[in-house]
Write a protein that binds this DNA or RNA. Structure first.
Lengths: 243, 243
DNA sequence: AAGTGGTCTAGACCACTAT
DNA sequence: TAGTGGTCTAGACCACTTC
């Protein structure tokens, strides 16, 4: 059953995670690394890589000399900000049935903050896609994505605006989204956004202003998002630098 | 010059980081891993560990088959939320001269959210320390730390309330702060907090509600913080899970 | 003293990028 | 095709916890 691709490390990680979720480890104690390595027929290094990732995610914790243990509180966390990739996934993790509706989609000149974020010329055009995400029938989040038309290599994108941005960028721009640099801003919702989210104007919310970079480290998308703070609350694990 | 402790990996990381900051790599291209390993007299594994951390911090990026490069935009980022450990450090990174003032310090019964966060009994007492952080003379952030009196092993803590919490916990509680689980909340500042921060009541701000865990994964401190959004803005790098 | 995780080595082979 | 980073191995030794 053990093969290449996904990597051995990923397989080992998934295997251990599954056993944790099934509560197969008595007392929350995970077997020693050498034992796991022998059982799975891989090197200890591979096991350690897998455990390191699980530790970083907050699923387990390790204590030198003592052992490796399941981190019960960590298992309860649903959306960890650093790991969010698609908002569809976030909603699923919260137990919602996610759906998305495209509010608008048009091509036009980039506004000033977008030009600055994406290093665009004054006359550059961007494809602006505005979406709302719903859990069951309730709106929980609004996102505006801005993609330079210059990199949209495939003009046949109609009806694909609803797909997650990173898929859109792969299918129609031939780019891979590598990471986001996000700024977290407290806002008071304006009338339009509040209406879309189904709350009173002036309601407090968290907003993200993010720049997405591709595999060559070029900025390729600017996203602005607003969240219903009462329905979606983000968590974050902060550790000592380098750990 | 290369010795144990700090670890080889940490030394290699610091060495490369320094060379990057000094702009010693022409065209932002970092030498191949094998070359770095040979030059420094360490194994390629050690070099890779160091590079992985620099990559995770956003200092460099790597492309399979192509090479390793300096990530210019990443170098500009000053405070990355996931890596914040002491707020003194944050302010220094922003180029401020940090200082801290203890607003109040007292022992009293824990309120309900604190009891829940720290698994305390209904009659448990906590040491509550309220501090304000200043850049030069301007207040930028207010923090309230709550530590169960049960774990304060050393009663002689007077005048040490101003030190960073993690130091206080080590010196007077014999615990090591391992990580924080933080919740990010948008707020409108109440009159008291606004006055301390020198802004109008009702000003928008980001608030953190955090639980600090020790090396045994026990919750040992609950912190609530409020920031001057105009003076301190947090950034975050979000990547694909597992990367 | 025994057993655990933490660090490091030397080397093999693979996947991908450049030319 | 040559050179790069990505994955994996097998083994050594160290630091720490537990008994």
């Amino acid at each position: 059953m053990i093969t290449r691709n996904p990597s051995l490390t990923d397989q080992v990680k998934a295997h251990i995670k599954e056993r944790i979720v099934r509560d197969e480890f008595a007392g929350g104690r995970i077997p020693p690394e050498t034992e796991l390595a022998a059982d799975l027929g891989v090197s200890r290094t591979t096991v350690r890589d897998a455990l390191s990732r699980l530790e970083h995610e907050g699923t387990i914790y390790r204590r030198q000399g003592a052992g490796t243990f399941v981190n019960e509180p960590g298992l309860q966390i649903r959306s960890r900000l650093e790991e969010i990739w698609s908002y569809e996934q976030v909603l699923e993790d919260h137990g919602y049935v996610p759906s998305v509706r495209v509010l608008s989609s048009h091509v036009g000149p980039a506004d000033s903050p977008t030009r600055e974020a994406l290093n665009l010329d004054a006359d550059a055009n961007v494809l602006v896609i505005e979406k709302v995400f719903l859990e069951d029938q309730n709106p929980v989040m609004v996102t505006v994505n801005r993609i330079p038309t210059r990199i949209v290599s495939d003009a046949e994108y109609a009806d694909d605006e609803a797909m997650p941005v990173y898929e859109f960028l792969e299918d129609h721009c031939n780019r891979t989204l590598g990471y986001y640099l996000s700024e977290i801003i407290p806002v008071s919702l304006d009338a339009d956004t509040a209406r879309v989210l189904g709350v009173e104007p002036g309601t407090l919310a968290i907003s993200f202003d993010e720049i997405g970079f591709d595999q060559n480290n070029e900025p390729i998308v600017r996203a602005t998002s607003y969240f219903r703070d009462d329905l979606l609350r983000f968590r974050l694990i902060r550790r000592r630098s380098g750990a």
